[in-house]
Structure formats: C-alpha cells, structure tokens
C-alpha cells in the first residue's frame, strides 16, 4: 500500500502536518478542564453504565496489541463538537489525550480537521510553541499516529496510536490504524444505542 494518495494522505515527516487554524479552530473553541472532575476517571459513573466504559477500555487494549504500538487512545467530539479525551489503553494514553485537550492542538485535532491520518514522528521535534508544551505534557509519549474515527462519513473523533520513542509511521501502520478506526466507529455507535441509566446520577 502506498503511503500517500491525493485525498487521504498522512504527513509522515518528522514534524507532521499542520492543519489550517481556521479548520482546526472549530474543535478548539471550548475544552473542559481535565482536572475539574477527577472522579470522572472512575468506572461505573457514566449514564451508559460501567459496561460502556469497560468495553471501550478493553477495545483500546486489544487495539494496542494488534497495532503493536505502545498504546492506543481515543478523543471524541462532544455535543458542542469539541474534541475531548475519552480514554486510553493505559493511563499515559489518557494523559496524551488530556494534553491535546488542554493545549487545544495536536495530531488528533489535525486529523479530525483534515479528515485524514496525521503522523508525528516526534512531538518534541514538531514546529511551534504549542507542540513544545504538548510534548512536555504528553511525556513519556513521543510519537503519535492519529486516524479519524468516521461515523456515516463524518469524523466523530480520532484514534491515537503512540510510542514512547520517536517512530517513523509506515504505510502498514496507517493501514492498521484505519481498519481499527473503522471498528472503533462500529463499536461506539452500538454503545451509543445502549439503554441510558437516568436514575444513577
């Protein structure tokens, strides 16, 4: 499989690609402070019940094994269209997503804005002040491959594959990422259809 095609090409340069700020900006207008509700990390408090959170957690761990990355993490758009950190196959994955949410930039935002995979070989080597802060917050994560999660053709979020060492993401990595992003979408729409617990909160 070729690395690039005209409409769906990841930037696999060490710096990755930068989406136009105007396009990315719609994801950046409002973010939640990740520290405002520490209990939100606890399982079983969601309206969709503990099984939804556990299902996402298990799926991310399976995806980490399949992709042979150090981990996989997920950001999804909320009701206002803002990308929020949802989870990771490990704590450092969720921290990577919180870092992107806090800085309002990163591979996930670029991937969703551009509608294609975005590969960053080393967060520390990426141009821009924002990325330097992101690299510090996301440590020990160094390399990130973000792939859009599409639901009915629209990007609902991004799946992030990451490594603790700099990494050149290959066409094979990207192919695996796109397949797993499709499965993530299949899982999420079904979790979204589960019965909501209105009485527990």
């Amino acid at each position: 499989m070729a690395d690039n095609d005209a409409g769906h090409s990841p930037d696999t340069t060490p710096q990755g690609s930068r989406a136009p700020q105007g396009a990315a900006g719609r994801w950046n207008e409002r973010t939640t402070d990740p520290d405002s509700d520490p209990a939100s990390r606890l399982p079983g408090r969601g309206r969709y019940g503990p099984s939804a959170a556990q299902g996402v957690a298990r799926a991310l761990r399976s995806m980490a094994v399949i992709s042979q990355a150090d981990g996989v993490a997920l950001m999804l758009a909320d009701g206002q269209g803002q990308l929020r950190a949802v989870g990771g196959s490990s704590a450092e994955g969720l921290d990577l997503e919180y870092a992107q949410q806090r800085e309002q930039l990163g591979p996930a935002h670029e991937s969703v804005a551009a509608g294609r995979p975005v590969a960053v070989a080393d967060l520390r080597g990426h141009d821009g002040d924002g990325y330097q802060r992101l690299a510090r917050r996301a440590a020990p994560v160094r390399a990130v491959l973000a792939v859009p999660v599409r639901v009915r053709g629209s990007a609902a979020g991004a799946l992030n594959f990451y490594r603790r060492t700099p990494c050149h993401w290959t066409s094979d990595h990207i192919a695996v990422g796109q397949r797993l992003a499709d499965t993530a979408a299949d899982l999420l729409v079904r979790l979204a259809g589960t019965t909501i617990d209105h009485g527990g909160r």
């Binding site: 939100s40 079983g44 999804l76 758009a77 929020r84 999420l188």
Partner: peptide
C-alpha cells in the same frame, strides 16, 4: 483509564 463524563458526552 476512561473519562466517563467525556465518553457520555460523545
């Protein structure tokens, strides 16, 4: 490592 509030919103 799941943020259930964010998952719910999504």
């Amino acid at each position: 490592p799941i943020d259930t509030a964010a998952l719910d919103a999504s």
